[in-house]
Design a protein around this nucleic acid. Structure first.
Length: 461
RNA sequence: GUCCCGUUCGUCUAGUGGUCUAGGACGCUGGCCUCUCACGCCGGUAACAGGGGUUCAACUCCCCUACGGGAUGCCA
């Protein structure tokens, strides 16, 4: 049974990198008929951000990634981690460490100066039993460290990277239980992944190097390790790991900007994976059907928003008109534009949708259908030209009797003997406020005879 | 510094020893459609990091170098 978990820490909003991990988790689970589980790794009290958990869950929901189990909160399982930490001490696989922060900083600094690898000097690794008990009795603050084996080569079999060897002599005696009684990631993740029967640990590449510590923990506890899957990172334009300093890459921020969830999903899915064919536009279902780790890339992918923009436009144009119209309503309401004429509104959206990259752009692209137009001096010069006035005069006189806009526009041109730009530009300017834009018959159709007449009268001398 | 991972057009990528004069997409660009803009359609631009091997044959396998990234926390 495939069971995968998405395990974010509530230290901020769900960002694109996290979303991609969740997406692959989800896709793999669905592909294999397994379960997608949410676990909140809230073991760092100092970095906890109010509302982050809600944001995480909400963002997943917005993206359509429903989890089958969870959320499980690690902060509510402290006694479990402690139990295993103590068991490890009992077995001699972990030990109490009473080193102070200051001592550790100093040691690290010295190692740096000597250009040595920075790792814990193992001061407390072989503390006599009596001393440990004395310190404990005195109530000295302590952490519990994992005693890494010496001279052991760890081999990680990673689903996307293959075999990775890491020599244990380079590995640190990592803290597994902090002085505040909370576990660190290493202990909590291993314990939970085992207890929750996680079959595949799918996470960012930044974890690859600490995997031996996790493997060792599984060994010590006599558990079977899961299958490891380390995903490539999502990079900024400078090819560094996407971080908060580069801007707001949260899912919420992209939704706010006016990207469609489907477009975000599609785009993010393609950052590090592809269906091995030339199809680039696909939905979540297709991703689930096609997903496999074999098709996941090893190298990090630079996030290029221009392609996301293009994709968003594709989705906007593909969408059902009524659905799109409903979705866009809020932007008109925000702009205090009255769109109560449903029939007109639908026509407006049908025209505007070809111009959109981001949802909110609908307002600047269609407000001229609702608001009184304003003209510059240059506009007025064109509108007041003799030929323009002749066109407007003809329209004012004959439009009321017109039955077919398309035919009317052609006939008018022929009868007036005016064509091309000289004919269309002034008309479009008068009706739409811009010499470029939709076709005149469409404009007439959207505005209707009444409003068209009003607009033409306004520019008549 | 040390260790780990990576390296095909500017970007996302296809490619698993011969089918590669390296394919697709975004971007940029030329054209078509057209009164204009947008959409759409057709075309162009541009890449195997470098050097050694292995092989009849290397983008594909091996080694080295370079470059990039990650880790090196009582953060995840």
């Amino acid at each position: 049974m495939v069971r995968v978990r998405f395990a974010p820490s509530p230290t901020g909003k769900l960002h694109l990198g996290g979303l991609r991990t969740a997406l692959y988790d989800y896709a793999y689970a669905k592909n294999q008929g397994g379960k997608f589980i949410l676990r909140i790794e809230d073991t760092d009290q100092t970095r906890f951000v109010e509302g982050a958990t809600e944001n995480l869950i909400n963002s997943l929901k917005m993206m359509g990634l429903d989890f089958d189990e969870g959320p499980t909160f690690q902060s509510q399982r402290l006694d479990i981690y402690k139990k295993y930490a103590l068991q490890l001490i009992e077995q001699g696989d972990a030990y109490y460490c009473f080193c102070t922060q200051k001592e550790l900083d100093l040691a690290r600094q010295r190692q740096k100066e000597l250009k040595l690898p920075t790792k814990y000097p193992e001061t407390c690794r072989n503390l006599p039993q009596e001393e440990v008990e004395k310190n404990l009795a005195q109530g000295l603050p302590y952490v519990i460290r994992l005693a890494m084996p010496k001279d052991k080569d760890f081999v990680i079999f990673d689903k996307v990277r293959g075999k990775v060897k890491i020599d244990s002599s380079l590995l640190d005696d990592q803290v597994i239980l902090k002085s505040d009684g909370f576990p660190t990631y290493h202990l909590a993740a291993v314990v939970d992944d085992h207890l929750m029967e996680i079959s595949h640990v799918i996470r960012g590449e930044e974890w690859l190097y600490s995997t031996p510590k996790h493997i060792h923990l599984y060994d010590c506890l006599g558990w079977k390790p899961p299958i490891w899957v380390h995903l490539p990172l999502i990079l900024n334009e400078n090819k560094a790991k996407l971080s908060k300093r580069d801007g707001d890459f949260s899912v919420g921020a992209y939704l706010e900007k006016g990207y469609l969830p489907q477009a975000i999903i599609n785009f993010v899915a393609l950052l590090g994976w592809n269906p091995k064919n030339e199809q680039e536009i696909f939905d979540l279902q297709y991703l689930c059907d096609k997903f496999s780790f074999k098709a996941v890339n090893k190298a990090g992918a630079v996030f290029d928003e221009r392609k996301l923009e293009w994709m968003n436009g594709q989705y906007i144009r593909k969408m059902d008109l009524q659905e799109l119209a409903d979705l866009l309503k809020k932007y008109f309401i925000e702009a205090e534009i009255d769109i109560s004429d449903e029939q007109k509104y639908l026509k407006v959206i049908d025209v505007a949708k070809d111009y959109l990259v981001l949802l909110p752009q609908v307002v600047p692209h269609s407000k001229m259908f609702y608001q009184e137009l304003e003209f510059t001096d240059e506009d007025l010069a064109l509108l007041h030209a003799q030929e323009s006035q002749a066109v407007f005069g003809y329209y004012l006189e004959n439009l009321p009797n017109c039955e077919d806009y398309e035919q009317f526009v052609k006939t008018a041109s022929a009868e007036l003997g005016i064509k091309g730009k000289a004919y269309f530009f002034p008309l479009r300017l008068a009706l739409f406020g811009n010499s470029s834009g939709p076709n005149i018959p469409i404009l007439l159709d959207i505005l209707g005879k009444e409003e068209s007449k009003k607009r033409l009268e306004k520019v008549m001398l």
